[in-house]
Amino acid sequence: MQTSVSVSVEDGRIAALAVLAISLHILEGAFPSPLPGVKPGISNIITIMVLCQAGWGWAAWVSLLRVLVGSVVLGTFLSPTFVLSLTGAVTALTGLGIAVIWSRQVPVLKLGAVGYSIVASVFHIGGQILTAYVLFIPHAGLFKLLPILGGAALLFGALNGVISYKALELLKN
């Protein structure tokens, strides 16, 4: 029996973008983290660029493919790390969805790459802390990490946003 899957041009583009994100994800995995949970999340530069260029649907595809394939390559698939990664990505995409709707409804205060990136990173860490609390460490002390994790999310979110913005500028020229 033979089954065939038709691959559209869009599928190919999404896959190519996901590969870029996965590469950054794996590259980042090679760097030591100062503290569990604190990571620059550089693969989200790709997610934000895709969001700004092609919309939320594409960004969701790229982000979720990155989590799935990244975990298989790094050997964390279905481990707690993977669960945290996935819930982080899902909450970040939820935040981005809200932000996109906001930008459409209130054009005066619409977000750019930097705003989207900050929203994504803060929602990401928020989702992860809640998941970690519910599933792995049901101790109120976990929330004492909030200033560190939240601060890092803001910082790296802004940084990734600026990189996305600059890269998008370069793409325009």
């Binding site: 906001w102 619409k110 930097v114 705003g115 004492k144 913005y165």
Partner: peptide, 25 residues
């Protein structure tokens, strides 16, 4: 950065500060 970017940066910073204070009580 757009005005909206500054707005979310400020709002989310404030949110994290408030949440941190609550958590550290």
């Amino acid at each position: 950065m757009t005005a909206g970017d500054w707005l979310v940066a400020l709002l989310l910073s404030a949110l994290i500060v408030v949440a941190s204070v609550l958590a550290w009580r």
